[in-house]
Design a protein around this nucleic acid. Structure first.
Length: 266
DNA sequence: AAGTGAAGCAACCGCGGCGTT
DNA sequence: CAACGCCGCGGTTGCTTCACT
């Protein structure tokens, strides 16, 4: 697969990479490290531009890059992360070791997005995730979004903590109209990590959190989800230990601790 | 078996952010 | 502080493979 090779006016090679080029690039980086992409191609004996080398290394040659089909767990994770982070593929890739942002982006654009559409799911708002709260009981929080009239949380609480986190984030901020404070609330919620079926405890704590969340009904309490807030949110996310906060739960059977959404059913 | 469209994948392009001068 | 250049990211394109008719 890939593209046919050709040469720029300045002699720079473009298009598909050959095995020989791959070997040269890998051998050079293994010996000298990456350094400056500008000069790397010439030093490595390649007629490529630095950008092309970087892309090839990150998406294909880098150690640990996972190739091949995405597992259902990975697909679920992509959908969930996408609902939280939007099309920030690099950020999503950070949560999925072994998968490059390009790989994830391609899979989303070529497969997952269409599959969601086929199932009548809005790829931007991920509305069915809200319905999912009904299908698979996970939390008992009214997200307080007056625009999300379909939210009808179940009284039970049985999914994993990370699933709950994703579920709550997905349902709560999918429209990206909510503020960082709200998200921080969710992420810092002690109920979030690896929750078991401790329904009573949840119900108890929900009383307090319910008060906080009740305020969410007032639109004025929301910070607008603008670029600045998104950047701050990303900073917060990046600094968090996902193992303890539940988004990435290595003890789970699935590395992404996702839950059955049924969104990918064909 | 051949034609055709869809799906999947690899790579390019353009832009914005950020560091340096 | 403005100008410049590089890097990284997201969108898009182009090619190959697969599935269906």
């Amino acid at each position: 697969m890939g593209r046919a090779t050709w040469f720029d006016a300045d002699g720079t090679k473009r298009g598909g990479w050959t095995d020989e080029e791959d070997q040269k690039l890998v051998a050079y980086i293994n010996e000298y490290g990456i350094g400056d992409w500008r000069f790397l191609p010439r030093k490595a004996g390649l007629q490529r531009c630095g950008k092309s080398c970087r892309l090839r290394w990150l998406n294909y040659l880098r150690p640990g890059v996972k190739k091949g089909k995405f597992t259902p767990e990975e697909e679920e994770a992509i959908i969930n992360f996408q609902s939280i982070l939007g099309n920030r593929w690099a950020a999503i890739a950070q949560q999925m070791p072994g998968r490059s942002d390009n790989d994830i982006k391609n899979h989303w654009n070529s497969c997952l997005k269409k599959r969601l559409e086929r199932n009548g799911i809005d790829q931007m708002t991920h509305q069915p995730i809200i319905n999912l709260a009904v299908k698979i009981p996970s939390f008992n929080i009214d997200c307080g979004n007056s625009s999300s009239s379909t939210v009808s949380p179940s009284p039970s609480f049985s999914s994993s903590g990370s699933a709950s986190l994703l579920n709550r984030l997905a349902t709560g901020i999918s429209s990206r109209e909510h503020g960082v404070d709200r998200i921080k609330n969710i992420l810092s919620d002690p109920r979030t990590p690896i929750i078991t079926s401790q329904e009573e405890e949840f119900e108890e704590s929900n009383k307090d959190h319910g008060k906080a969340l009740a305020g969410d009904d007032q639109e004025d309490d929301f910070l607008m989800w603008d670029e600045e807030n998104m950047r701050r949110f990303m900073d917060e996310i990046g600094q968090m230990d996902f193992e303890t906060n539940g988004v990435y739960n290595s003890s789970s059977s699935s590395p992404y601790s996702v839950y059955e959404t049924g969104l990918l059913d064909d």
